[in-house]
Structures are given as C-alpha cells and as structure tokens.
Design a protein around this nucleic acid. Structure first.
Lengths: 137, 137
DNA sequence: ATATAGTCTGGACTATGGTACAGAGTCAAG
DNA sequence: CTTGACTCTGTACCATAGTCCAGACTATAT
C-alpha cells in the first residue's frame, strides 16, 4: 500500500542499513532501482521482499553468494523447486559438518581444561604444554 | 639437536608455509629471528615449538589474536596457570554458543526442506516463500 | 664456474561483509 | 527562503588470515 519510498525508509522497514543496501546493489543482490529526477533511489514493496529474503538467508547461514544463487533460481523459469531443495539439503550437510568439527574442538578444550587445576605459574601449565607439544593426541 | 636452520626447513618441519611464517613474524606472533650475514633468517627449535603452538591453537579454534595473547601469558611471570585456564573455559563457552546457534540453523533448514516436496516450479517453492516472508517464525 | 634452488623486501591482491567518509546536491517544514 | 535532514557518488578503510609477485641477492652442488 505504500507506493514508492526512499532508501532511508527501506532501511527502516527492513532493518538493513542504507550503506548495506547500496552494497547489496553493487553486489547484484538487489536490482538497480528506479530513480527520481534528482537521482534518488525509489523503491517499492518488491525491494522489501528481496531484502527480507537476503536477511533471512543470512540468518540461516547462507553466504551472500549462496543467497544470490537462490535469488537467481527464484526467477529462472528453467529451474525447479527440486533445485532449491537440493541446495538447502547441501547446506544442511555443511552445517552438520561444522557442528561436528566444533564439538571435536570443544572436547579437546574440555580435556585441556580438566588437565589444569588452575594453580601455579604458567611455566607449569598443562594447557600451554599441550599446545607446544609436537606429537599427535 | 639440529642447531639452526633456514625458513624453508622450518616450514617443512612445522607444515606452515614460508609466507605464513613471515606473516606471523610481522604480526608479532613469532619473534624476529637471528640473521645470517646474508640476511637469511636463522631459526632454532624454539621457533618450532612456537609455530606448533600457533598451529595447535588454530586447530582449537583460537584466533591469531587469542593465540598471541596465550603466547604472551606464557612468558609473563605475573600471570598464572589460572589465567590460561580461564581463557580456555571462556573459549569452551563460545564454542558451545556457536554449536547451539548452528543447531538452530540446522533445524530451521530441516523444517524448510521438509516443507518442500521438490516438485513443481520455483514459483511455488515453500522454501523460497518462507525466505521472502516478513513475519517471524 | 655455473646452474638451480632458496631467500630477501615491500607491496599488491584474495575473499567476506560490510562501514565510513568527503563534498555535492536535494527535499520538506516552517 | 532558509535550515536541517536526507541522498548522491566514489573511494578508502576495517578485520581476518593469509597468498603471491617482482626483482634482487645468496647458497649449494656439480
């Protein structure tokens, strides 16, 4: 219902800063908008949808490149829902991978911390010793 | 037992590239080594220990800044083992936080994927629809 | 002696995702 | 009509963690 509006309004509506909106435009994530005679960018509700799409994608851990990819799929008549689902499933795998890796790190850190009673000088700290030790495990 | 050696040997022993070794030196993570008359850097086993320390720290998810911090603690006589343990425990918390966040993302992606049967054109894809929807949840 | 391999410095460049100006022009309210 | 808020372009800069290059010099083996 809002017709057209400036970049400042778009920023407020989407919680994305003006600079970032222009940055997305430069990156091709947002199409170049219409301009007023003065050169001011003029947006409509499509731009809101698109920016919200980008914001949600980021919240789901998609990179800007991946989001750009999804945005392209969205308008390409030759791609199907299955393509989108595939990318989503691939992303799920990579997120799981990252979780597993972090859990390994967590366990290693827990082991280190447990080995240290927190007493004495750093010269006797088992954490630092372990970090400096060459061998595996 | 190896006395001194060049940056190339150090690189091979530690599995860290020559460029990266020089980069760490610039960043203050490695002390400036002795030089030969020719200007060639000359290392000893201390450098191996230090580089291995950095490598292990990175494998545990510490940033170079954090590693630099730990390296400083290691030689500062005013800090104790407890300081190191504290940093380690803080790191454990932040890793756990990251895991939780990724698991939330994973679940959201799974929900999206489940909503999509992978049929039809992108214009009817529930994943893309969800991404563009403004409302929460 | 010479060929090949290694090393030196300094700076540019990569990717990611923005942020921060300066200096000029424009819009809207009083 | 003036004032303050807004927007424009272009460029530089931030952090992170490197990577690569040119052009010069050095080390080592044969």
């Amino acid at each position: 219902m809002s017709g057209t509006f400036s970049i400042g309004r778009l920023a407020k509506r989407t919680q994305v800063s003006i600079e970032t909106i222009r940055f997305y435009e430069r990156k091709g994530l947002l199409p170049e908008p219409e301009r007023r005679a003065s050169g001011y960018r003029q947006y409509n509700d499509n731009a809101v949808g698109r920016l919200v799409f980008i914001r949600h994608g980021k919240e789901l851990g998609f990179s800007l490149a991946e989001i750009s990819d999804l945005l392209t799929l969205r308008v390409d008549p030759h791609t199907t829902c299955a393509d989108v689902k595939l990318r989503t499933d691939t992303k799920i795998s990579s997120v799981r991978e990252k979780v597993r890796s972090l859990q390994k790190i967590e366990q290693a850190l827990i082991n280190l911390s447990a080995a240290c009673r927190g007493l004495g000088p750093t010269s006797e700290c088992p954490i630092l010793e372990a970090l400096e030790t060459v061998g595996e495990a």
